[in-house]
């Protein structure tokens, strides 16, 4: 009897997750298999019906090409972009979610709506308007700086050292809303009693944050971390429209490189190989986050 009930529960459980799994298998897994399959062929966008088996050649090309070099150009650019964007988006998202949540804050709805505004605007418009704002001679940014008395304002996207920072700022501006929403819903899951208890206990702000709030919303933070990291690794449109990977491959992150190979140069096989590598990078990162989460929670609960 008991076993039977368990079996029933199992069937019920799978019925609940069946719709999402069907959707994912059809529109994500199946095309993904095809992409991985393509990655072992010499296949051109212009002649997809003529493909020649190439073994590991497409993968070798990614790692052996010198211009751009994977290890000294693509990887550092990707890491810089992802770490900067993720830290900025989640950090500011969490901070603002907590601040806006404070009881004394007036006009909370309006503030939330404004904070989420950049997210409503299409990525293309974001990219071209930020590029134009950064423009050193005609852009509004340097115009304002010069009005404020700065004699030699930076050249932003033209400066090898600044260009990635510029992209990260634009990306934080655009994507922070996502983390803000997740963290806001996370904070909603904490009851007011807990919040108030923390205040009454005399815990100061920072202690309250680390000892009481963070453990309670940890699941939301980890999920946020995983999702934002993946979205940043996979995204290409902002960089594509603002610098197209330049100058000198300083902003050639791996997804932009994939776009260049697969679509720009029409080498679908190589693009597919890079896509597979992106997938692996995501996988490693996710496993890392999950491990970290597990250790943390084991330590905290024990």
């Amino acid at each position: 009897m008991n076993l039977n009930k368990n079996q029933k529960e199992t069937i019920r459980g799978y019925l609940f997750v069946a719709p999402v799994l069907i959707l994912l298998f059809l529109f994500s897994l199946y095309p993904l298999f095809k992409t991985i399959y393509f990655s072992f062929f010499d296949i051109r966008l212009a002649s997809m019906n003529r493909k020649v088996f190439a073994g590991w050649k497409n993968y070798r090309l990614l790692f052996t090409r010198v211009n751009p070099s994977f290890f000294s150009q693509i990887l550092p650019a990707t890491v810089y972009y992802v770490v900067g964007s993720v830290a900025g988006q989640i950090g500011f998202g969490f901070l603002l979610a907590i601040l806006v949540q404070q009881k004394f804050v007036k006009g909370r709805e309006a503030i939330r709506a404004i904070i989420i505004l950049p997210w409503v605007v299409s990525g293309i418009i974001i990219a071209i308007s930020w590029r134009f704002m950064y423009e050193p001679r005609l852009g509004v940014l340097n115009y304002l700086l010069m009005r404020m008395g700065v004699v030699n304002p930076p050249t932003w996207l033209n400066d090898e050292r600044l260009v990635m920072g510029c992209l990260v700022v634009a990306n934080i501006w655009h994507g922070m809303a996502f983390s803000f929403i997740i963290q806001t819903s996370g904070l909603h899951s904490i009851s007011d009693e807990v919040m108030e208890a923390a205040l009454v206990d005399g815990a100061n702000g920072f202690q309250r944050l680390t000892l009481i709030i963070i453990p309670l919303v940890r699941q939301f933070l980890v999920l946020n971390l995983i999702l934002t990291s993946m979205a940043t690794i996979n995204s290409f449109d902002l960089i594509f429209a603002m610098t197209n990977g330049g100058p000198m491959f300083k902003t050639e992150v791996i997804s932009v490189q994939m776009y260049h190979r697969a679509f720009g140069f029409g080498r679908l096989g190589e693009g597919s190989a890079i896509a597979t590598i992106i997938l692996l990078m995501n996988l490693i990162l996710t496993i890392f986050y999950m491990r970290m989460n597990k250790n943390q929670s084991a330590g905290g609960d024990g």
Partner: peptide, 8 residues
């Protein structure tokens, strides 16, 4: 969630 849409 980690599948890049561009790849598929």
């Amino acid at each position: 969630q980690m599948v890049p849409i561009l790849a598929t």
